[in-house]
Design a protein around this nucleic acid. Sequence first.
DNA 1: ACGTAATTTATAATGATTCTAAATTAGTGT
DNA 2: ACACTAATTTAGAATCATTATAAATTACGT
Lengths: 138, 138
Amino acid sequence: MSNIHIFAEKLRSLGLRPTQQRIIIYSLLFDRKDTFHFTIDDLQNILKNTSTKKISLATIYNTIHSLKDKGYLKEISINSEKTYFDTNISKHHHFFDESKRELIDLNDKDVGKIKIKKAVPGKKITSIEVLVKIANNN
Amino acid sequence: MSNIHIFAEKLRSLGLRPTQQRIIIYSLLFDRKDTFHFTIDDLQNILKNTSTKKISLATIYNTIHSLKDKGYLKEISINSEKTYFDTNISKHHHFFDESKRELIDLNDKDVGKIKIKKAVPGKKITSIEVLVKIANNN
DNA sequence: ACGTAATTTATAATGATTCTAAATTAGTGT
DNA sequence: ACACTAATTTAGAATCATTATAAATTACGT
Ligand SMILES: [Mn+2]
Ligand SMILES: [Mn+2]
Ligand SMILES: [Zn+2]
Ligand SMILES: [Zn+2]
């Protein structure tokens, strides 16, 4: 059973035709052990360097947005300069390394329980996310 | 002692000439009791509706960036659609109302102590920020 | 293989932000 | 008050990321 076939099935199960481009992108994003945090620009560069097949920028955007809409990617806003995507769609938090300007996952268990002592009338909490900025020591 | 004169002195003390445009913007931002969260677009609309003097978009950007660079405004990224600025420069957290798409301050004291149980070698924590998304009940 | 709809692609359009260079204004000295 | 100079404002152009368009290609059921 080749990975490609498995990815093709995954895509099909999402209602997305397993095109060559989607399989290449899907395997780049998900055929790895760890969470992958990336920008569209990152992805474009990696694809340029690792894939023989040229994938247009429009297709990169289309594919990422499809995967995001299907709930397979999370979008993360850290600053106005870049938009990040995250293959870890579970509830979790982040370190942001100000030096390398990259995200590192903080498991939900890595953060103590967060107590919110204020409520807004008529509103309920839908999510709580912590962003921990880090920089080089000294 | 008019407010305008006070604002003029404030600006001067920041190394910014108290021009008519800056005084108008400064008083709009800071002559209020509560924190003000806004986008450039918000500011432009408010100025259009409240000020007789027309202020160019370039000047709005210039002024906001000057104030941000001087540490009098904080920039906040919630999502990729808009960039928010915050007149509250103290360490604090936020509610983000998904319905109204607006920010509400969460005082540092309104959030229980946050314990980060993971460290990154060679890195130190420079800030911890919590974003609590809220939506209409039911 | 054929037909058709889905997808990809090059390219154009958009929108927010930044840049540019000319016009205006604020502060200084007379 | 007037003149001078540097700082600031401004309209408009440039840039950059993202989205839209519409023609070419591909996937897939028949
Ligand atoms: Mn990169
Ligand atoms: Mn608004
Ligand atoms: Zn993550
Ligand atoms: Zn705030």
